[in-house]
């Protein structure tokens, strides 16, 4: 009996003293944190991908709370809906941003771009890139070793083993930008998703002169300037022997796609053409000739 009482008493006293110490320590070292940070964090997708430029979702929430306006702060994973929620919590205004998607700008499949060497090192783009220009004659194109695939947290980009080129799954891609940073050849770009996911872009990064790039790959941009001339909206510029379509100016008229002699400009998700069947045929014949 006595034993139990002593045990209870000692434990009780230890507990009480610890509680008091803990209480004062907690008071002394208390750090005030804006409760809105927790609320904002809860509204975020919790992917912790770093696509916003901050370390994790909490870092982003912290930045949102501290910032005066939400300009320049955007969660690419959550998109406009999430930003609207965040703005609601904070009583600020969120500017709607057009959704973007990752686009791989290389069309050099095995058919178009013959392999001249065989790479036998670690399957890692960065290592191969530091070593040499690639298995093909094109020193700008995709190495196909899948650094982008490894970097993607969302399983949205995968190297197709037949074409040896990465393919983006639009539904899964959150345009966090991890693959953009991972690609040593700087092939991946975040472009506007476009209405009904319709997009037109130059599927090449080759800055060599036309005759050199053509030699190594059938579908390279040869900087023939035709697209620049045909574009009615001045959306295409050519720098360093390479055409680039500015997605904020492009109205998706597809004139450049038709005129490109090497099929380096590609269109995505457009309905099949009806009228220009004939002209397409002649173009193909010309190419064959």
């Amino acid at each position: 009996m006595n034993l139990i009482v002593i045990a209870l008493l000692t434990l009780g006293i230890i507990g009480a003293v610890s509680a008091i110490i803990l209480y004062f320590v907690a008071k002394k070292f208390h750090v005030y944190e804006d409760p809105r940070i927790d609320q904002v964090e809860a509204a975020l997708p919790a992917a912790n991908c770093g696509g916003c430029g901050f370390p994790g979702c909490r870092g982003f929430a912290n930045a949102c709370v501290k910032a005066d306006t939400l300009d320049g702060l955007f969660c690419p994973v959550g998109g406009n809906d999430t930003m609207k929620n965040v703005a609601g919590i904070l009583g600020k205004n969120a500017v709607a941003v057009a959704p973007t998607v990752a686009v791989v700008r290389c069309g050099g499949t095995c058919d178009h771009r013959p392999r001249m060497n065989e790479y036998d090192g670690v399957k890692h783009c960065f290592i191969a890139h530091n070593l040499y220009s690639g298995e093909t004659g094109c020193s700008w194109g995709c190495l196909g070793l899948g650094d982008c695939e490894v970097s993607c947290e969302f399983d949205a980009i995968k190297v197709n083993q037949v074409t040896k080129l990465p393919e983006v799954d639009e539904d899964k891609c959150t345009s966090c930008g991890a693959c953009v940073k991972a690609c040593p050849k700087l092939l991946i770009e975040l472009r506007k998703k476009g209405p009904k996911s319709r997009r037109i872009y130059v599927n090449c990064r080759n800055e060599d002169k036309g005759h050199i790039s053509r030699k190594s790959c059938d579908v390279s941009c040869i900087s023939c300037l035709k697209c620049e001339k045909v574009c009615p909206y001045e959306a295409i510029t050519i720098t360093n022997n390479l055409a680039f379509i500015h997605d904020d100016k492009c109205k998706l008229c597809r004139k450049c796609v038709d005129i490109c002699p090497t099929n380096a400009i590609v269109e995505l998700n457009f309905p099949p053409r009806k009228v220009k069947e004939e002209s397409m045929n002649t173009k193909e014949e010309q190419l064959v000739g």
Partner: peptide, 8 residues
């Protein structure tokens, strides 16, 4: 055959 490329 194609020459093999690998790091040293």
């Amino acid at each position: 055959d194609k020459l093999i490329i690998s790091p040293a």
